[in-house]
Simulated assay, not measured.
Amino acid sequence: MESNVILLTAEGYEELVNELNNLKSVIRKEIAGKIKIALAFGDISENSEYDEAKNEQAHVEKRITKLEMMLKHAKIIEEHKQKGTVGLGAKVIIKDIEFDEVMEYNLVGSAEADPFKGKISNVSPLGKTLMGKKIGDIIEVDSPAGENIKYEILDV
């Protein structure tokens, strides 16, 4: 696989397409309006509204460029079909053995990872350890604090 390939689920791809369309069709127009209003204030050398709008415009254009590049190199992850085995695109339910806490994650490519939304990357310590494991397996993952955390895979 090429190193510049961006792995995305179909849902993640669609989210990026929607974000890109929103930035191009809505946000760009809003910023252009802010710049126009700021220019009406006159001297732009000391115009904080103008500076702020131009900075926002630069940020949006950078994001548009990044999204276009990601979508250009995107490879859609096929729906994970190997029932009972963890793979890219799989939904995994695990239990922290020490704290008896159950968590649910979707295993996605790094570009789509968002732990706060339950999406972990296949290259993260937990994601990497989960890959290829089966229901009932006990795994150990190094925590940032340096100790190992044990999880049991409850469902895939």
Rank of each mutant, 00 (worst) to 15 (best):
Ala32Trp: 00
Leu39Gln: 12
Glu61Met: 11
Lys83Gln: 12
Gly33Trp: 03
Gly33Gln: 05
Leu39Thr: 04
Ser48Ala: 15
Glu52His: 08
Ile77Ser: 11
Asn55Cys: 09
Glu68Asp: 15
Leu39Val: 00
Ile37Gly: 03
Ile77Tyr: 01
Asp43Tyr: 03
Glu56Tyr: 11
Leu71Tyr: 05
Asn47Thr: 10
Gln82Val: 01
His59Gly: 11
Met70Glu: 15
Arg63Cys: 10
Ala58Thr: 07
Ile44Ser: 04
Phe41Leu: 08
Lys66His: 11
Leu67Asn: 09
Ile76Thr: 02
His73Gly: 02
Thr65Tyr: 07
Ser45Gln: 01
Gln57Arg: 13
Glu78Asp: 12
Phe41Asp: 14
Lys75Gln: 14
Lys75Met: 09
Ala58Tyr: 12
Ile44Thr: 09
Lys54Ala: 09
Lys72Gly: 13
Asn55Arg: 07
Glu52Met: 11
Lys36Val: 13
Gly84Asp: 15
Lys54Gln: 15
Thr65Ser: 13
Thr65Trp: 04
Lys81Glu: 10
Ser45Ile: 04
Glu49Val: 08
Tyr50Trp: 09
Met70Asn: 11
Ile44Cys: 01
Ala32Arg: 04
Gly84Pro: 10
Gly84Leu: 03
Glu79His: 03
Ala32Val: 01
Glu68Trp: 05
Ala38Met: 12
Lys36Trp: 09
Gly42His: 11
Glu61Arg: 03
Phe41Glu: 15
Ser48Glu: 15
Glu68Leu: 11
Gly33Ile: 04
Gly84Thr: 07
Asp43Glu: 08
Ala74Leu: 01
Glu30Ile: 00
Thr65Gly: 14
Met70Lys: 03
Glu52Tyr: 05
Leu67Pro: 07
Asn55Gln: 08
Ala40Lys: 11
Lys72Ile: 08
Asp43Thr: 06
Glu78Cys: 06
Asp43Phe: 02
Leu71Ser: 05
Gln57His: 07
Ile35Val: 13
Ala32Pro: 01
Glu46Met: 04
Lys75Tyr: 11
Asp43Cys: 08
Val86Phe: 06
Ala32Met: 05
Arg63Thr: 04
Lys66Tyr: 05
Ile31Cys: 00
His59Lys: 14
Ser48Gly: 10
Val60Arg: 13
His80Lys: 12
Tyr50Cys: 09
Ala74Met: 00
His59Ile: 13
Leu67Cys: 06
Leu71Ile: 13
Ala58His: 02
Ala53Gly: 04
Ile37Asn: 04
Gly33Cys: 03
Met70Gly: 09
His59Tyr: 12
Gly84Tyr: 09
Lys75Asp: 15
Glu52Leu: 10
Gln82Asp: 05
Phe41Asn: 07
Ile77Thr: 11
Ile76Gly: 01
Glu52Ser: 15
Ser48Thr: 14
Val60Ile: 15
Arg63Asn: 09
Glu56Pro: 10
Ile31Ala: 02
Ala74Glu: 01
Leu39Asp: 03
Thr85Val: 14
Glu30Met: 00
Glu56Val: 07
Ala58Pro: 07
Lys83Leu: 10
Ala58Leu: 10
Glu46Arg: 12
Gly33Glu: 04
Gln57Ile: 02
Gly42Ile: 05
Lys62Tyr: 07
Met69Arg: 06
Ala74Asp: 00
